[in-house]
Design a binder for these strands. Structure first.
Lengths: 150, 150
DNA sequence: TTACATTAAATGTATGTACATATATTTGCA
DNA sequence: TGCAAATATATGTACATACATTTAATGTAA
């Protein structure tokens, strides 16, 4: 059992609030590293994976860059350049939208769908990275996080 | 009250575990954005702030790059280049360690200490970014996060 | 219809992250 | 002593983030 005090070698915190804040940032980063490791053998990064999943949700309808930004966890990241990388790997296609030539229709390719099918097995195994939590604890965690952002 | 379902416009999740995972990543990012905004007027970024705080903790003793890496939340980030930025702003000094010329002694300057004093007022106001949580809830959150990383 | 604002996406710049590799110094051992 | 291994930091590359600016297309109103 590795408590946050040991992880960052800081014996005490000024308050339970400060401790929870640091723990939250540290744990989110820890989870991100684990996921990145799982994706590496497949030649894809976490944000690229998230964009692919959004596109699968739309399939066979296209998505625009705007729709990706709305749905992405990180609203301010650069969807254009993530799509660049996916297009270079032939996992998505980009065509100008016929009804609005400012917009771009982005679609997942069969290769992209196939990659997601292989990744689903990895990612959705068991209860995922939070497997140490019971369903009830996971729900508690969500409630606390929602409250932070109130 | 903005629940995670609304934030990312995904009406349902496959499980409470998946929901908690996405909520965790989203909330950590949300907190990071808020802190970055608070720091921007002071011409400093969040990782630079964290390094400065570690240096103040050592003051007036110097710290090495190794010590910074050990203490930083993100162990794999590049402490060298963060120190580069702080040095360019004259917030820290870098001198080769006399007793071990491989190592570098990094010290916070008076200007760095003064900047931290001004930032303390901002950052430590009230209970910080988690002010919506009671002390008990903050402790619950820490316990759940520790359990995730078991 | 032209002029101006709005919208969609791409591009530019600075920073940070993740990881591999390089360089210099020190340590330890044959 | 001399040479390999370990250590401390710096550098290189690819990717992502954050935000400002640019370009092109569309909408709107005089």
């Amino acid at each position: 059992m590795m408590k946050i005090e040991d992880e960052i070698q800081q014996p005490t915190f000024k308050s339970s609030h400060q401790k929870a804040l640091i723990n939250l940032v540290f744990t989110a980063n820890w989870l991100g590293l684990r996921q990145a490791c799982a994706f590496r053998p497949f030649g894809i990064t976490l944000p690229q994976f998230n964009v692919l999943r959004i596109l699968r949700g739309q399939h066979p309808k296209p998505a625009t860059v705007n729709l990706l930004i709305e749905r992405m966890l990180d609203k301010t990241s650069n969807a254009s350049r993530i799509v660049d990388k996916l297009e270079a790997k032939a996992l998505v296609t980009r065509t100008t939208c016929p009804s609005n030539r400012r917009a771009v229709d982005i679609r997942i390719t069969e290769a992209g769908l196939e990659l997601l099918r292989r990744l689903d097995v990895e990612v959705d195994s068991e209860r995922g990275p939070l497997q140490n939590l019971t369903p009830d604890e996971a729900a508690q965690l969500s409630a606390l996080l929602d409250k932070i952002r109130d």
